[in-house]
Amino acid sequence: MRNVFAETFYDLSKLSSQMCLLCADISPAGSMMKFRHEYPNRFINVGVAECSMIGLAAGMALRGMKPYVYTIATFSLYRPFEFVRNDICFQNLPVTIVGVGAGVAYSHLGATHNAQEDVALTCSMPNMTVIAPCDPLEVVAATQYSAQSTSPLYLRLGKAGEPTITQNAPDPWIFGKVRFIREGTDFCLLTYGPITSRVLHVAEELEKLGKRTAVVSVHTLKPLDKDGIARILHKFEKVFVVEEAAPIGGLASQVKSLAWDIRAQCVLKTFTLDDAYHARYGSYDDQLAAHGLDKSSLVKGMTCA
């Protein structure tokens, strides 16, 4: 995902001299080095100084530039949180905050580098738009959208190597709209971000058990497509949310809240990261399993719902 972001950003930056990137001493992926080489003035490494990174981005936006800030999600959002709130969101500035390694993607780096709370935090911030692409193709679409956005935007990315899964999706990517990436009639799985490729495997498993299972990419988490989700809650017999984020304040709790508001009759069950820091290391799938988000746990949880 980060390589595709870098490639798309580089392409867009050739068209707009306002686009600039501030990073906090992270080695930017692939094409970002081309950008740095070609536009050295517009690439600013502030060093290990995340509050500076956000503050400078706000000042540059106030002068009409289009800044992106880029580092690991915990550092682009948590460390400088009050700066994101006051400098970017309160002043409603067109700064895109890129959070790399969201969820438990940095599985070998441990809890200090895992961003479990980022969706809840950003969705609660006035003026903020939140987009979490599920594969490299959605990263392209989201990055293109971000370039013409005129307000704060949190772009939640995985890391590298995520498979392309939406090339044959029935629906196109439209900002602010849920998107069916797999069709089905019995169950519907709402999800977003890198875990979506695993959720597709869950859907295949459920299909084998006779349940025609749709998968929906809820790539835009704020503003949330309440109408689209309401239609799903009314249409399907069972709806499941699979979310690689904290159980409070993310998609799961918002869908439950919406289901109450519209008096939805479907079975609704949510699967999220635990409300816990699992101090452990391992592969991405090991981390998901520790939180009960591995394929067998999900299939079991859904079939007995």
Binding site: A57, G59, L62
Partner: peptide
Amino acid sequence: GIGMGMANA
């Protein structure tokens, strides 16, 4: 920081 961003822009 905001002032520095402006000066840098």
